[in-house]
Design a protein around this nucleic acid. Structure first.
Length: 375
RNA sequence: GGAGGGGUGGGAGAGUGGUUAAAUCCACCAGACUGUAAAUCUGGCCGCAUUGCGUACGUUGGUUCGAAUCCAACCCCCUCCA
């Protein structure tokens, strides 16, 4: 099959764009939000309900699936799509985020990252090559290079060393992908450089030299704050290839996404709607609320009476409050469902606003309704 | 009627002379969460006020420099025997 992966832009509004990523397993409307399904499940959600919220693609995770149940095991069971009953596109993270989140359980060398499993203490070496091999075994449609994701703040010299390591790993990842990758699969490179504009630009240039089908911005939303994150994007997205998808990894809250879309980002993922949903936080058109708060105990209204999502429309806040107070499983399930639907509706609204050249109006309205200050 | 055991903060339950406004758990009140070691974690939880003060371990009285802790009486609860 000819290049089965493609991206085309339908409309632009300022630096924002809307378009479609085509893959053999289905189209992805952009800007897109990708729910996170680390361990082969978007936690607390049925696969068909994830789809019903409007998601075109979900994430899986190299590190976590490598440890359990194992990449070869998933491959023997028909691949991740079949395993988790999600026939549409899957993007897998390389394990790069775990370099940061599990920093006390790993050692970093030029060769790769050696992790001590948080499950049983066993040792696992994750090299750029092995990460790609695992992502191919899982059957991921969009794969990510192995990178080092450093936390901010970080000294510039250390940030540059880290960025250069990620760039070398990008090259090795690309070579491995050319060996293991199947038709229809694609590989993204990851821009690093912390919050140093010149390092970000250098990182982009190095990745372009290697050549990828998409470019991710990694290492943001790691402590720098929204204003600084958007400032870094201001210096980064303009030098990224216009005709390739741009993916801001791990971001974010609704206001982060709106700000990043305005700066030309096409793809997002974040645990916020799922994790916070399990923890009682719901995003609504009137801002974020904590359904566990006592003030909802007698509130007979749903989260969103006009929503197409059953979780948002058919259950009262008082009932959701009760489920959480009682520790019932259905509470986290319904709130996750609601949040994912809210996120997908936000993305659909953003796409529509860009398509008709009205993004600024949308942002003003979003800011007024949610009380979020947008920069 | 007899014998024994026990009454601690919203609940359960530690604590048997000072370091105790009183462990711990639950409940309750709030917060955090950004490529998921997360259905997790953090803070608050007698009253008032700025360190502090005032009340408080069934009730009352006593011993003591000092009592939730020791003594006495009383009230109440539980178990067993009649």
């Amino acid at each position: 099959m000819a290049n089965a992966f493609s991206f085309h832009i339908d409309a632009a509004d300022g630096r924002a764009r809307t378009g479609v990523i085509k893959t053999p397993r289905g189209d992805i409307a952009t800007p897109a939000f990708m729910p996170v399904g680390t361990a082969g499940t978007v936690k607390a959600m049925l696969s068909e309900h994830v789809r019903a919220t409007g998601a075109d693609i979900v994430l899986g995770n190299t590190y976590h699936l490598m440890l359990r149940p194992g990449a070869e095991e998933v491959a023997a069971l028909g691949g991740l799509h079949r395993f988790m009953n999600w026939p549409r596109p899957i993007l897998t993270d390389s394990g790069g985020f775990q370099v940061m989140s599990l920093s006390n359980l790993r050692k970093l060398t030029e060769k790769g990252v050696s992790f001590q499993s948080h499950l049983d203490g066993s040792k696992h070496l994750l090299t750029p090559e092995r990460s790609i091999e695992i992502q191919c075994l899982l059957g991921a449609d969009i794969q990510m290079q192995l990178d080092e994701c450093p936390a901010i703040p970080i000294e510039k010299e250390a940030a540059r060393e880290s960025m250069l390591l990620s760039a070398r790993w990008a090259e090795r990842s690309k070579a491995a992908f050319e060996q293991f990758g199947a038709p229809g699969q694609t590989l993204f490179g990851i821009v690093q450089g912390a919050n140093y504009d010149d390092l970000r630009v250098e990182s982009v240039e190095r990745l372009i030299d290697i050549g990828f089908e998409g470019y991710a911005v990694g290492g943001l939303a790691v402590g720098e704050g929204r204003e600084e994150m958007l400032r870094v994007l201001d210096g980064t997205t303009p030098v990224m290839p216009r005709e390739k998808p741009r993916y801001l990894m791990g971001v974010g809250k609704p206001a982060d996404i709106v700000g990043a879309v305005a700066r030309g980002i096409d793809m997002f993922d974040c645990v916020a709607p799922t994790r916070s949903g399990r923890h009682g936080q719901a995003w609504t058109t009137a801002g974020a609320i904590n359904i566990k708060n006592a003030r909802f105990a007698k509130d007979d209204t749903p989260l969103d009476a006009d929503s197409a999502c059953p979780a948002s429309r058919d259950y009262s806040k008082a009932y959701l409050n009760h489920l959480f107070k009682a520790g019932e499983y259905l509470g986290p399930m319904l709130l996750t469902w609601h949040n994912l639907h809210y996120y997908q509706q936000l993305m659909a609204d953003l796409r529509a606003a860009i398509a008709r050249g009205a993004l600024q109006d949308f942002i003003t309205k979003f800011s007024d309704e949610t009380g979020e200050t947008l920069l």
